[in-house]
């Protein structure tokens, strides 16, 4: 198969994707271990106990969480500053919504992927899926979630980090803890779908490979990101 390939991601974008992936997964796992309260423990007491054993103590776990979190924020902010145009392009792409097309895509794709085309027809819908741009509606939704979550997680994380150093009023810290958990939880819910789509689902295999190689087959681009494909073709 000597398919023509189209450029999709450059090297810095691939780097920041995997850097994000490592940091977010690490921070999710350690963060979940930091919650140690029988009323809250989302998965039970065994997880915080396990994490504390792995890191030696709760204090070490907290330190790792704080400093990996700070490293993530600093590197990511530098990335945005040094690649300001690309980052703004990403923002524009992630937030350019076409309500009717995106809603239709989300509903149909969800039914198609879980119940199949038969179910779509039974519900009286056609099996044609609206054409998508550089990101499909699902990817955009996840991008929006991570952008909002990333900003809020950074701010609330900083508040908690600085709390015992400079903050005299503990109330913002208490709320930060609650909001930090909320955003991380929602981002994790999105991440499950994101990881499944990329690493396990058959259809999106080329997208997964492109996160290493930077290129996607022309055929894949035409089927999955038709609007983007046309844009690229028009340019060349």
């Amino acid at each position: 198969m000597n398919e023509k390939m189209i450029h999709r991601h450059d090297k810095p974008a691939i780097f920041i994707h995997w850097f994000n992936a490592f940091c977010w997964i690490f921070l999710t796992l350690t963060g979940l271990g930091l919650i140690k309260n029988d009323q809250i423990n989302p998965v039970g007491a065994w997880w915080p106990n396990l994490m504390r054993s792995i890191f030696g103590s709760g204090e070490m776990l907290l330190n790792f969480h704080i400093y990996i979190g700070l490293t993530w924020a600093v590197v990511f902010i530098l990335y945005i500053l040094f690649r300001f145009k690309d980052s703004m392009g990403f923002l524009k792409e992630a937030f350019s919504i076409n309500p009717s097309r995106d809603a239709s895509w989300l509903i149909k794709k969800n039914i198609q992927l879980t119940l199949g085309n038969g179910a779509l027809r039974k519900m009286g819908m056609t099996t044609d899926i609206p054409a998508q741009g550089f990101y499909n509606a699902g990817q955009k939704l996840f991008a929006q979630l991570t952008i909002v979550a990333g900003i809020i997680l950074t701010i609330t994380g900083l508040i908690m980090y600085l709390s015992t150093m400079i903050l005299d009023n503990p109330t913002p810290v208490a709320w930060s803890r609650t909001i930090h958990f909320l955003m991380a939880g929602l981002a994790f819910a999105g991440l499950l779908v994101h990881i499944y789509m990329a690493a396990i689902s058959r259809e999106e295999k080329p997208a997964f490979k492109s996160m290493f190689s930077g290129v996607v087959p022309e055929d894949y681009a035409k089927h999955h990101h038709e609007l983007w494909y046309k844009e690229v073709k028009n340019k060349s």
Partner: peptide, 25 residues
Amino acid sequence: AMTGFVNPLVKIAVGLSGLGVAAMF
């Protein structure tokens, strides 16, 4: 807010997302 609202909400969100992934798989 953490015990009464946020924690159940996160559990539901992650649960639904997990169910969706399981169905697709």
